[in-house]
Design a protein around this nucleic acid. Structure first.
Length: 540
DNA sequence: TGGCGGTACTG
DNA sequence: CAGTACC
DNA sequence: GCCA
């Protein structure tokens, strides 16, 4: 078990760092604590422990605090107000009465009961604080639920009294929550920011990935290098010697030598060599455009187009998708701050709820956002309804988003002629890709929206949350056992191209209600969304 | 030496 | 169908 | 590229 924690501030912070360290040492846990000094926040940490730290739990845990996130965000030059939008103040408010953090955008103080509770968790007790003080039972329950919900169940949106039991029947009184019966547990309340401790190495490898990305003939070499980067990024220590990585899956003789070279000299010769070619540079530049891949770039290059700048003078060579990609290139390339990703997801959600007021909808922003990243490349939203019969047409939602001037351009045409059943509902997944912009914002963003029938939703969440290595890994795991897994479900593998693949041993007739159902059914250890920022999933 | 994820949209 | 894209 |  490894624990990494990041805290920032003074006052309360130092105290909890000491407590956490003590506790971790008592558990003989391999831990690494980082204390970050940045102005602005002092008293946040206590609430962060409640929010993020499953202290004293015997699982493989990662303690990550929003304070660290705040530090990262401030380093990137964003306003603190953006950060406060990240925090789920509804949950803080629930604790406000008890002296917990104030919800008006600034955490002011942690109440005595709350601090006592944190200390209790840190000391491993369950009902009394470290100094023997008894914590009021109502408050105890509330705090415990707070942590458990945030970390393991993620039922963040439900006040404690409204946490649905797994066997609960849909309540007629709380219609709005109907859709979340069984689905809300996918909400991820955790923000995990793991700093890349091995930037010195990932930076050295990135040019190799970029290089192989621009051709389509060495896909697997590219994938291998990509895995190496994600492996390095996932490490909780800074690599100082290639020998530290000798036993890791994905590090072979070639990569080992490259890591060794990068550590000694600061760069990889091979990575420098490949980019000496002007053609490679041109091809990479052209492929910045959405819709231009290896083949099209090569074709354009043959026609004498060497850069995006030159491409802008020859738009007649592009199809409609590429034209949009070119038009919004500068915007799309920019990273999206986490707060904006959330706001875009909320805009889609609000629009959907306004459009189908009688429908109970589950809406989830996935992708790197759901994996807890502090910025994203695009926004991925998926929806479902508890309706067994199917979903309303996604095209209607897209039309409404157009009407609200939220969507600026379509990269795919929303199908309005999908096969519908007698109720006029669509019983298969519907997908959309486009460009959007929030009212009052300057930069356009890539938006993906998908609408899934509810029985596919757990699989859709898994797929749309990623990351790509995680998906490939999990699907590979399923395949070896004789199943084929996708965003629509799990099926008996039709083709068996390899002897490694076992014959499916049981029919797939289970009803999967949650992501965890899928993990359990596969015999695959459950991973919280924030634990899916991985390069590979190992299984015993 | 063969395998490396599964799917959707465009043209 | 090939190419590109999504995680 | 790595791995079984």
């Amino acid at each position: 078990m490894k624990v990494a924690f990041f805290v920032q501030g003074r006052d309360v912070t130092a105290k909890y760092v000491a407590l956490a360290t003590k506790r971790l040492e008592a558990l003989e846990v391999d831990h690494a604590g980082t204390n970050v000094s940045a102005p602005g926040v002092t008293h946040v940490v206590a609430s962060l422990f409640a929010r993020e730290a499953p202290v004293g739990l015997d699982k493989d845990v990662q303690i990550v605090t929003l304070a660290w996130l705040q530090y990262v965000v401030s380093k990137q030059g964003h306003e603190p107000s953006e950060l406060t939008a990240e925090m789920d103040w509804r949950r803080c408010k629930a604790m406000q009465r008890n002296g917990a953090p104030d919800g008006e955008g600034q955490v002011k103080s942690a109440g005595a009961d709350f601090q006592a509770w944190v200390e209790m968790r840190l000391s491993g007790n369950t009902s009394t604080s470290a100094d023997g003080r008894r914590i009021p039972s109502r408050y105890l329950q509330r705090c415990n639920a707070f942590v458990l919900r945030g970390k393991y169940l993620g039922l963040a949106d439900f006040p404690p009294s409204e946490i649905p039991r797994h066997d609960a029947q849909p309540s007629k009184k709380r219609k709005r929550y109907d859709a979340h019966q069984g689905y809300a547990c996918f909400k991820s309340g955790t923000i995990a920011v793991q700093p890349n401790l091995n930037e010195h190495l990932t930076n050295a490898f990135q040019p190799l990935v970029d290089y192989y990305e621009i051709f389509n003939d060495e896909e697997w070499r590219k994938v291998s290098f990509k895995r190496v980067i994600d492996l390095l990024r996932s490490l909780k220590f800074k690599v100082t010697s290639a020998d530290q990585l000798r036993s890791y899956r994905g590090i072979g003789p070639k990569v080992f030598a490259m890591i060794d070279e990068a550590l000694r000299t600061g760069y990889i010769t091979r990575a420098k060599e490949v980019w000496k070619s002007d053609a490679a540079v041109s091809l990479r530049d052209l492929q910045r455009v959405h819709g231009i891949g290896a083949t099209v770039a090569r074709d354009l290059h043959k026609r004498g187009i060497r850069s995006v700048a030159e491409l802008r003078e020859h738009k007649e060579l592009l199809n409609s998708v590429q034209l949009i990609g070119l038009e919004y290139l500068d915007d799309i390339e920019q990273r999206i701050p986490r707060a904006e990703t959330g706001a875009i997801g909320k805009f889609v959600e609000d629009t959907a709820r306004a459009l189908w007021p009688s429908k109970a909808l589950a809406v989830e922003t996935c992708g790197s956002y759901r994996r807890g990243k502090s910025s994203s490349g695009d926004v991925d939203v998926i929806l479902t309804t508890p309706d067994q019969a199917g979903c309303p047409p996604l095209a209607d939602l897209i039309a409404e988003l157009h009407a609200r001037k939220f969507i600026a351009a379509d990269l795919t045409q929303p199908k309005d002629q999908l096969p519908v059943n007698r109720q006029g509902q669509v019983a298969r997944k519907q997908t959309y890709m486009g460009i959007c912009k929030l009212p009052g914002y300057k930069v356009h963003r890539r938006l993906d929206v998908k609408f899934y029938p509810r029985e596919q939703f757990p699989f859709a969440l898994l797929y749309f949350t990623g990351n790509d290595h995680f998906n490939r890994s999990m699907r590979n795991f399923a395949k070896r056992k004789g199943w084929s897994m996708s965003d629509e479900g799990i099926f008996s593998a039709q083709r068996q191209r390899s002897e490694r693949i076992a014959k499916a041993s049981r029919p797939v007739d289970t009803h999967f209600r949650t992501e965890k159902d899928v993990f359990d059914w596969l015999g695959f250890p459950y991973k919280h969304p924030t634990e899916r920022n991985c390069y590979d999933v190992t299984f015993a």
